[in-house]
Nucleic acid binder design. Structure first.
Lengths: 203, 203
DNA sequence: AAATTTGTTAACCAAATAGTTAAACCGTAT
DNA sequence: ATACGGTTTAACTATTTGGTTAACAAATTT
């Protein structure tokens, strides 16, 4: 059946495009390079995706679709707050190892295209902070954690987990270690970060 | 004296280049756009800076020269640890308001050009973590803070301060607030972040 | 004030790059 | 076999873009 072959080529292109776009960004990516990586003629890119812009949007959407569930692990999950922070921190490292350039790619392109946010927000499955806010105010009421705004806590959790990857080259230089040692530091963070956060908020 | 005029044109170009490069990155920036912003002919860019690459490097160097002292406020400063954390957090927001795209620019271009790190490291005034390490181990010995690796604490401080700006469009969408409210959140962080960190490590 | 050096511009060039076209290919149904 | 559909390619086009050139302008030196 030709459908199988079509799907193969199409996903082949998408996979190649993911690699190139995530590594070099929209502006730095070259259609020819994507075609080469997918081992097809450049015209095929346009046959399947019409334009660079549309191919890029397909990649971006796919990237965000992968990232959203990670964020939802903090925002929408019924488990106990501390347990949740521990699990998210633990999981996030593994996620980034599987998709090293993805979070940075999403953040960068959002910075360069703030109007994308509008599109994303309108789609279903866009993570919402509402549940998390309730959980935090409950935990405060029950005397489990010190008073803190849910927004601030959320930003702290995300910052502590995402930035060490985005800022890797800078942090590696500042901390003055090589790639191997830096990876060890990141591995340590799997547990360290959660304890750092919990230490700060628990009563 | 023509020197004055030359300096004006040269810095005019550099300022325009800073704006464009920091906003769009090396790959996304256009020499013509820089020339337009500097209100000069495109050939003048090459007269003063030879190539896009060299102009970019001048901008990058200048950006890092501005960023380094900020980092040194955490790493090399004799003041009391808690006071230092409080002051850095307070100052950093003001710094980023003055140079909104600078930290992200530096980090992005380092990600795309990891070999830049080598050049930066070899220059004097590159921030070193040594003093900070001593300060932390002293504080632990003296029972002021709980045991923590200096590297981890440093990464935490930097992450909590820098990421909220780099991830602004994403965080704004996730936290579900408009620009104005997000700015208020950032202003709150001037004090909140320091207390969050100190809470976590103090005994 | 003539000559020389420095600063600036318009016009141009070559390479890179996104996108198009028309023909070839290839499996499937007639 | 052959006509037909979707798939793939080589060759091409138009535009963008970094960079150059040669002439002009303005200041500096002699």
């Amino acid at each position: 059946m030709d459908k199988i072959k079509t799907e193969n080529t199409e996903t082949e292109i998408l996979n190649a495009a993911k690699e190139i776009f995530q590594l070099k960004g929209m502006a730095g990516a070259r259609m020819q390079e994507i075609a080469d990586k997918a081992k097809i003629n450049k015209a095929l890119l346009h046959y399947y995706y019409r334009s660079k812009q549309l191919l890029f949007e397909a990649v971006f959407k796919s990237a965000f679709t992968l990232l959203a569930p990670q964020l939802n692990k903090v925002l929408n999950d019924d488990s106990d707050l501390f347990e949740k922070i521990r699990r998210f921190t633990e999981n996030y490292v593994s996620f980034v190892i599987k998709h090293p350039y993805l979070p940075n790619f999403v953040i960068q392109e959002l910075n360069k295209n703030p109007e994308f946010v509008v599109k994303l927000r309108s789609e279903k499955n866009f993570p919402s902070i509402d549940k998390f806010k309730l959980q935090i105010s409950d935990a405060i009421k029950q005397g489990v954690i010190k008073p803190i705004e849910a927004e601030q806590l959320f930003i702290n959790i995300i910052s502590l987990n995402i930035f060490p990857f985005i800022g890797e080259p800078l942090l590696m230089a500042l901390v003055n270690v090589d790639k191997e040692s830096y990876n060890k530091i990141l591995q340590h963070r799997k547990t360290e970060v959660a304890e750092f956060i919990i230490n700060s908020i628990k009563i």
